[in-house]
C-alpha cells in the first residue's frame, strides 16, 4: 500500500516539473491553430481596409498601424503614456491593498467592524467607478489625483470582499491544530490565518488589478490631460487618427495581459498552486 501511495505521490510531483509529451504536443497544436486564425482575421481586415470603401483615417491598414506603433515607441511618447498610466494604476492599486486587506481582515475578525462596514461596502459596490469621475473632477480637478482616486475606488471593493471571505473561510481545523501546538493569537494570525486566506487574497488582488486597469483607461479619457494611454485613445478620436488608437489599444492589451499572466500568474504559482490550494480559491 505504501508503495502505491509513493508512486502516486511521485507522479504528482512530476506533473509540476516536466509536462508530459502528449500535453506539449496538444499545446503546440493549439498555438499553430491560433496563429492560423489570427493570420486569417488580420488578412480579412487588411483586405477590407485596402478596398478603400472606408476612409483610410477610419480603417488604417495593418502596416500603417505597425508603423505608427513603432514610431511612437521610438520617439518615446508611447513609453511616457504607458508610464503615466502605470503610475496611476499602481498607485491606486497599492492604496486599495493598503486599505482593503486590513479592513477585510478586521471585518472578518470583529463583528462590530463587520456590522458597520458591510452595509456601506455593499451599497457603494454597485456604483460604477466611472459614475464618480465627473464628481471627482469637480472636487479634485483634472489629472493624477482624480484618476488615482478613481482607480482606488474601483480596486478597493474586490480587495475587501475577497479578504473578508478568505479570512472567514479559513479551515477551523487549522486553527484548532495550531492552537493545540501552542500558537498564540499573534502567531495564529501570521502563520495560519494569513496563509490560509491567501488564495482569496490573491484572487482579490487579481480582480482588483483588473478593475483598476479598466478604471484607469476610462478615467484618463475624460479626467487626464496630455499623458496616459486612455487619454491618447480619446484624443486620437478628435483627430480621426484610428492608427494611433489601434496602436494604443494593442499596448493597453499587452500591459494588461502581462500583469495578469506574469505578475499574478507567478504569484499564484509560487504560493497557492504550489500548496495545492487552488480549488478553494475558485469557489
Amino acid at each position: 500500500m505504501t508503495m502505491i501511495a509513493q508512486t502516486g505521490a511521485n507522479t504528482g510531483l512530476q506533473d509540476g516539473k516536466t509536462p508530459d509529451p502528449a500535453k506539449r504536443a496538444a499545446s503546440w497544436r493549439a498555438i499553430r491553430r491560433a496563429a492560423i486564425t489570427i493570420g486569417l482575421a488580420l488578412a480579412t481586415y487588411e483586405l477590407i481596409a485596402r478596398t478603400g470603401s472606408f476612409p483610410r483615417a477610419l480603417l488604417p491598414t495593418i502596416p500603417m498601424i505597425v508603423r505608427t506603433l513603432f514610431a511612437m515607441l521610438l520617439d518615446g511618447s508611447m513609453l511616457m503614456h504607458s508610464m503615466y498610466t502605470l503610475y496611476r494604476v499602481l498607485f491606486g492599486f497599492f492604496l486599495a491593498m493598503v486599505v482593503g486587506i486590513p479592513l477585510g481582515i478586521l471585518m472578518a475578525r470583529f463583528r462590530r467592524v463587520e456590522q458597520f462596514f458591510l452595509p456601506l461596502v455593499s451599497a457603494l459596490m454597485p456604483i460604477p467607478s466611472f459614475a464618480l469621475v465627473p464628481l471627482f473632477m469637480l472636487w479634485f480637478g483634472i489629472g493624477n489625483l482624480t484618476t488615482i482616486i478613481i482607480v482606488f475606488y474601483a480596486a478597493t471593493f474586490p480587495m475587501i470582499f475577497n479578504t473578508w471571505s478568505g479570512v472567514r473561510s479559513v479551515n477551523p481545523l487549522w486553527l484548532r491544530a495550531a492552537g493545540a501546538m501552542g500558537a498564540d493569537e499573534h502567531k495564529l494570525f501570521w502563520k495560519v490565518i494569513i496563509p490560509g486566506a491567501s488564495p482569496f487574497i490573491i484572487t482579490g488582488m487579481r480582480q482588483s488589478f483588473l478593475r483598476a486597469w479598466i478604471a484607469v483607461v476610462g478615467a484618463e479619457m475624460i479626467a487626464a490631460s496630455n499623458w496616459g494611454l486612455g487619454w491618447v485613445i480619446f484624443d486620437a478620436k478628435e483627430f480621426l487618427n484610428a492608427d494611433i488608437m489601434l496602436a494604443s489599444l494593442a499596448v493597453i492589451g499587452f500591459i494588461g495581459f502581462a500583469f495578469e499572466r506574469l505578475v499574478f500568474g507567478s504569484l499564484e504559482r509560487g504560493t497557492v498552486m504550489r500548496w495545492g490550494m487552488m480549488r478553494s480559491a475558485k469557489s
Partner: peptide, 9 residues
C-alpha cells in the same frame, strides 16, 4: 513535499 502531493495515509 506539500500535503497535496501525499496520499491520505
Amino acid at each position: 513535499s506539500y500535503p497535496h502531493h501525499l496520499s491520505g495515509g
